[in-house]
């Protein structure tokens, strides 16, 4: 989008929208993401947040930890392990791990490093990315069943151990779609699962959140397009998506979510200091594929981290550019 906006293909929306109302009503992180060179170029219609940490209220009691360190220090009791992870997904195996790394990069090193990483200018061997992998490695070290279970468990079965008796783990990191799998695969009932936002790591990037969203821009400046854009950002328009379930509105005035998960995800979105798209989705296919595989190789043998990362640098060098 940034490229289109800079090339002038996307028309600025500052005189199309009622900017004051738009900024007041829209989650600030999303306003920022749709702004190029100080001009509003794209608006969000709907969004989803990732980096949610799921738990079974019967096992995990008390407040959501405020910091990552506090979370890591949480005792897994009554479960054996703190985390459950499932990376298997056929030919796409490894992708749940990329979400972990993305959350770590954004929370540890902030949006600038994150953007450079997505754009292919941040080396994988740089300390910022390496420390995200190492943080993930620590999580895997506390995962149910060890690396073999992490690698062979399907992402859909990943959270099943939250609901067993005794529970295999206390926490599971995944986007909101996972609740369907909790019910179907894990045999969980409504009320047996809840979530909190993955805590901040570096306080200077408080509220940083990853997710997905649909961005709308205007290529042709016609009266119809202007009317449509102005309508799309209103609470009335965005309610339509929300009522169908599974989507979050960019407009903070929309509050009548059909379920508690959506409602609380919307709060996270509204309060997000920084919002970034899923990095691996934005990378070139070759980079994305190598990223998935790197996750598997790293979990399989953490000692190989340096060679795995330098291999990713090699892929980065040829995957971008043209």
């Amino acid at each position: 989008m940034t490229e289109w906006a800079k090339a002038g293909a996307l028309k600025p929306l500052d005189d199309v929208l009622d900017v004051a109302t738009y900024k007041a009503d829209t989650a600030p992180a999303l306003v920022q993401l749709g702004t190029v060179d100080g001009k509003i170029s794209g608006v969000f219609i709907k969004a989803a947040v990732k980096g949610l940490i799921w738990y079974n209220p019967a096992n995990f009691k008390g407040e959501a930890p405020a910091t990552w360190d506090a979370l890591e220090a949480t005792s897994p009791a009554p479960a054996k392990n703190l985390w459950c992870i499932g990376l298997e997904s056929g030919a796409a195996s490894g992708w749940p791990g990329t979400d972990w790394i993305e959350d770590f990069v954004l929370r540890q090193s902030g949006p600038d490093v994150y953007d450079a990483w997505v754009a292919g200018t941040q080396k994988w061997t740089s300390p910022e990315i390496k420390s995200a992998f190492e943080a993930f490695g620590k999580v895997v070290g506390q995962a149910y069943g060890g690396s073999n279970a992490v690698l062979t468990t399907n992402f859909g079965d990943g959270g099943n151990q939250l609901f067993t008796n005794p529970p295999g783990c206390l926490l599971h990191h995944q986007a909101s779609f996972i609740t369907d799998f909790f019910k179907k695969q894990g045999g969980a009932k409504d009320g047996q699962f809840d979530f909190f936002r993955m805590p901040d790591i570096n306080p200077s990037f408080a509220g940083a959140t990853t997710g997905a969203g649909d961005l709308f821009g205007m290529f042709n400046d016609t009266p119809q397009a202007r009317a449509l854009m102005a309508y799309l950002v209103t609470a009335d328009a965005q309610k339509i998506w929300v009522e169908r379930g599974g989507a979050l509105s960019a407009n903070t005035k929309v509050t009548d979510y059909p379920d508690a998960v959506s409602k609380r995800s919307a709060d996270i979105l509204a309060n997000a200091g920084v919002f970034r798209f899923d990095a691996s989705d934005l990378m070139p296919t070759a980079m994305n594929d190598a990223f998935w595989k790197a996750i598997l190789d790293y979990v399989n043998d953490p000692n190989k981290l340096d060679s795995i990362l330098s291999n990713l640098d090699t892929v980065q060098a040829s995957a971008y550019g043209g």
Binding site: G145, G146, T152
Partner: peptide, 8 residues
């Protein structure tokens, strides 16, 4: 070839 952790 399916695998479940020991004990399951």
């Amino acid at each position: 070839f399916d695998y479940r952790p020991p004990g399951q």
